[in-house]
Simulated assay, not measured.
Amino acid sequence: MNVCTRCIYDEKVSNISFDHEGVCNYCRQLEKLTVDYGTGGERGARKIDDIVAAIKRDGKGKQYDCVIGVSGGTDSSYLLVWAKKVGLRPLAVHYDNTWNSAIATQNIYKVLSALDIDLYTHVLDNKEADDLLRSFIVSGIPSIDAPTDLALAEVMYRAAAKYRVKYILEGHSFVTEGISPVGSHYFDGGLIRSVHQRFGRRAMKTYPLMTFWRFVWWVCCARIQKVRPFWYLDYSKEVAQDYLQKQFGWTYYGGHHLENRITSFSHTYYSPVKYKRDFRNLTLGALARNGKMPREEAMAIYARPPAYDPDLIDYVKKRLGFSDSDFDEIMQAPPRQWWEFRTYKKRFERCRFLFKMLAEKNLVPMSFYLKYCFPIKGAKK
């Protein structure tokens, strides 16, 4: 099997290719982003300084000057620290899908209390949350945590609009976690609505659905900018975790995005078992790519199945009303794909040049343009 000579991505990764040096297209993509954003260098520092100055100018006279989504994880927690250090006045925003781990909840409380940052929370009705999650599992498509990811984005926009804030800061770092390839794991508001209409049992009343036109409104009319400071800075997840633990008694939760129970279920069991998709290649690949872990060691770890908690599997089955036989049948059923449902994918592709301009102005993340606005090899119309 072909494996990138720089990271650990192999030929099973969707839409991957290798150049004459054996380096994958995703590593080359990250090289270009590093140059474009000046990541970790003086140019990147100047760029983010200019953005911070613009945020402060726009925020004069307002209660808050930016919004930051929080999950209790490393990146969002440390982003709050960075924002306070540079003199910003953030409002923390949390989308509670009712599947938070106790660790995540405590981490959010510890950091916000110590930094004296206000919290805006949107709590989904738990029965509605379970019905939406159940519908995704029954659908057979891989992206069962898609409703959470999209809802957080919508809630941040809503909070920003409520407090007249024009900047949303996100804690993503392409250096420490790459940009996840789009293939089977695609989602948008059209997909969420389509899956729920086919398999859901309860009306969506409290779920903050981001439709295509709401998205267009946020970026083109409200013109709320999305900024990822770690794309410009010399950011280390290990340094961040050490700082958070020492300063706030923050607790590590065991892995990438495992602070939420349903995401933990998806990453450690559901995706690896049903779809043979192991998300550890994102962080392990980044560690190898950045020289923080020997490539051979990263590949050896990746070759071992991810550890999962059997009690979490039992909890998911019980909470969602799956019998053992029902759950086994779902896990053994042939996978479905996102393109079997209605989505906005073709609209995003047709509007590619618009979204490129919006990405260059920080009105949509550059990763959105790179992942959503181009045809995906193997995806059917």
Rank of each mutant, 00 (worst) to 15 (best):
C4S: 02
D10S: 09
K12M: 03
V13A: 07
S14D: 12
N15E: 11
H20L: 13
E21F: 12
C27Y: 09
R28T: 03
Y37F: 13
E42M: 03
A45T: 06
I48A: 01
K60R: 15
C66K: 11
V67Q: 02
V67I: 11
V67T: 09
I68R: 01
G69T: 05
D75I: 07
L79E: 06
L80K: 01
W82I: 10
G87N: 12
G87Q: 04
N97C: 05
T98L: 00
S101Q: 10
I108E: 05
A114R: 07
A114L: 04
L115D: 00
Y120Q: 04
Y120T: 00
V123F: 14
L124Q: 13
K127W: 07
E128A: 12
S143Y: 03
D145S: 13
A146C: 14
D149R: 11
A151P: 13
V155P: 01
S173V: 12
H185W: 04
F187Y: 12
G189R: 00
G189P: 09
I192K: 09
H196P: 02
Q197T: 00
Q197P: 07
R202D: 07
R202P: 02
F212W: 08
W213G: 00
C220D: 10
I224G: 01
W231Y: 15
S236C: 11
L244K: 08
G249E: 01
W250I: 08
N260G: 04
Y275D: 05
G285V: 09
R295W: 00
Y302F: 13
A303F: 06
R304G: 09
P305Q: 02
I313D: 03
V316W: 08
R319V: 11
L320M: 05
S323R: 02
A333F: 05
R336D: 07
R336E: 06
Q337C: 14
W339F: 07
K356L: 15
F368Q: 07
C373T: 14
P375V: 00
K377A: 14
G378H: 02
A379D: 06
